[in-house]
């Protein structure tokens, strides 16, 4: 059974009298353990796809089966529960809470798990997630005391903390320099390899998409191409020379 199964998904936005067809019938299966990169220029519909995959939005038509369950028509709160249990998000802008420790940031999804976990249990699980991304020794740092790469790894720990079957990463390296980008991509690759977590990555950069095991190109609300890919290893010595000023 695929983790994700999209069946003829369409999404129509109404902007005044204009009708925008963001997705025009997308069908797609993603199996457990895949690292899928979705690439496309802005306006291609990849963000809309990401919102629907992430249960942040509902399709206008079609069906979305997540772990076999149709989530296309669930209520707002039911979708919140699905997001909490099954999906981890990694955003371009990290979206960490300011003036809040790394540990407390990682704890956030656990606050909304039902039944409610005791505070000690929340703490222990957040700590374990932080250690998984190699930031156990930064637990009490605030985001402004961490580098960009560290912040994004805290965000990955937050995405991991509820043991989701799917991590959705929306331009996770968009705010990072090349070296840090590679660090983050390696972290994501390791999650797939060691824990079998399915990863869907949205990006407009071809060299970032190349870290995936499968690359799906999207244009004008339709899938343009869908190819298996030999993932590019995230090795530091492969870093292309970059100007000194850009090095973190």
């Amino acid at each position: 059974m695929p983790v994700i199964s999209l069946e003829a998904i369409t999404k129509v936005y109404k902007l005044g009298d204009n009708q925008v067809d963001a997705l025009r019938g997308v069908s797609l299966d993603i199996d457990a353990g895949e690292f899928v990169s979705i690439v496309g220029p802005s306006g291609s519909g990849k963000s809309t796809m990401m919102h629907i995959l992430g249960c942040l939005d509902r399709p206008t038509d079609g069906h979305y089966l997540l772990n076999g369950k149709d989530v296309s028509a669930l209520s707002r709160d039911a979708l919140a529960e699905i997001r909490n249990r099954q999906i981890g998000f990694v955003f371009q802008g990290f979206n960490l809470l300011p003036r809040t420790t790394a540990l407390e940031n990682v704890e956030v999804p656990l606050l909304y798990s039902r039944p409610i976990l005791p505070a000690a249990e929340r703490r222990a699980r957040a700590m374990a997630a932080l250690e998984m991304v190699g930031l156990g020794n930064r637990a009490d740092h605030h985001p402004n005391q961490l580098s960009g790469g560290q912040q994004q790894r805290v965000a990955i720990a937050r995405a991991l903390v509820n043991q989701p079957s799917l991590i959705l990463a929306d331009e996770p390296t968009g705010n990072l320099d090349t070296k840090t980008s590679i660090d983050v991509m390696r972290t994501l690759q390791e999650l797939r390899e060691k824990q079998g977590i399915t990863i869907v990555l949205i990006t407009h950069e071809a060299d970032i998409a190349a870290y995936g095991t499968r690359i799906i190109a999207v244009r004008d609300g339709l899938i343009l191409s869908d190819k298996a890919n030999a993932p590019r290893p995230a090795l530091e010595d492969e870093v292309a020379p970059v100007p000194m000023a850009a090095v973190n």
Binding site: G54, L56, R76, D77, A80, E81, R83, N84, R85, F89, F91, G93, N95, L97, V108, P109, L111, Y112, S113, R158, N162
Partner: peptide
């Protein structure tokens, strides 16, 4: 607003 968005994305219900 962003904090609220993040909380909702990670599973906060309207009531939360």
């Amino acid at each position: 607003t962003r904090e609220i968005g993040l909380r909702v994305a990670t599973g906060a219900r309207s009531l939360d």
